[in-house]
């Protein structure tokens, strides 16, 4: 080992170990990102956003070509003018979608006057194979904080802010294996915990655990937040039940939930920065 590593190299390795310990301790004692994390992410955040935008453009171009090929197969004399018109329609559809989202948001805010929301765009998706999350382009500068709930314009639960920087935040989605939400089956009132599951994460599903064995639950039942704990207000839609089974021990019943929010295709989300706990 002495032949491989000089004293200086060993010094760098010890420094790396100390840095790792400091990062770990820092992450445990502080909820907000540290200055180094803010520096790295502050620089990377606009780069990530730009590359994501380019990647989305390429992805949409690819989808466009694929769709265009299908249309050509069906109709050989499709003209370039039509393609241009389609592009305009796509742009219009994008505006319409955004418009719809904002209109839905107005509806949501009218229903819940106590909700104070910050809209955010997704700048990057998690690069981990062990969890589910994404970064958004809003941070402490806009009032975003750790533990705040992230929803869609329709009030569907997306996840929770797990880390926050000045102009960026990390969202842990409800699919993440560490995510847990107090949940209730709408109508029947059965309570349980909606939690992320590693096996179901890839399928875009989560599970509702701790249901009693005699609970009568049907596929299609809607699951809402109970409002227990400080993170999620009561009555937000988590998803619908698509399967019910007994756990391995045969004691507890669990249900598989399909999230109401289409997490994989999200472009814009809303951070619930404050709400009336009583409401």
């Amino acid at each position: 080992m002495n032949r491989l590593f000089s004293t200086r190299t060993k010094g760098i390795l010890i420094a790396a170990l100390i840095v790792a310990i400091l990062c770990g301790v820092f992450a445990l004692v502080r909820t907000e990102a540290g200055p180094l994390s803010n520096l790295i992410n502050g620089v990377l955040s606009p780069v990530r956003s730009a590359v994501t935008t380019i990647a989305q453009q390429i992805e949409s171009l690819y989808n466009y070509i694929y769709r265009y090929d299908l249309i050509v197969a069906r109709n050989a004399d499709l003209t370039a003018r039509l393609a241009a018109a389609e592009e305009q329609i796509r742009d219009a559809e994008a505006y319409e979608r955004e418009n719809e989202r904002l209109r839905d948001l107005v509806g949501l805010v009218e229903q819940h006057e106590d909700y104070e929301l910050v809209d955010a765009r997704i700048s990057a998706w998690s690069d981990s194979n062990w969890g589910s999350g994404f970064r958004i382009d809003k941070g402490t500068n806009q009032g975003v904080g750790v533990g705040q709930c992230v929803i869609t314009e329709n009030g569907q639960v997306v996840g929770l802010i797990s880390e926050v920087g000045l102009n960026w935040s990390t969202v842990m989605t409800i699919l993440d294996p560490t995510s847990e939400i107090g949940a209730m089956v709408y109508g029947s009132g059965y309570m349980g915990i909606a939690q992320g599951d590693f096996e179901l994460m890839d399928e875009g599903m989560l599970r509702m655990s701790y249901l009693s064995t005699d609970a009568i639950i049907r596929n299609g039942d809607q699951v809402l937040t109970t409002g227990s704990g400080d993170f999620y207000p009561q009555g937000l839609v988590i998803g619908i039940i698509v399967d019910v089974a007994l756990d391995q021990a045969g004691v507890d019943k669990y249900a598989v939930i399909e999230p109401a929010a289409e997490i994989d295709t999200l472009e814009q989300v809303f951070v619930l920065i404050s709400y009336d706990y009583e409401g």
């Binding site: 790792a20 310990i21 990062c23 770990g24 994390s37 992410n41 998690s126 981990s128 969890g131 999350g133």
Partner: peptide
């Protein structure tokens, strides 16, 4: 990768 990505801190050493 730890501060800018999603890696865990022990990845540094």
């Amino acid at each position: 990768s730890c501060l800018g990505g999603d890696a865990l801190v022990f990845v540094i050493p």
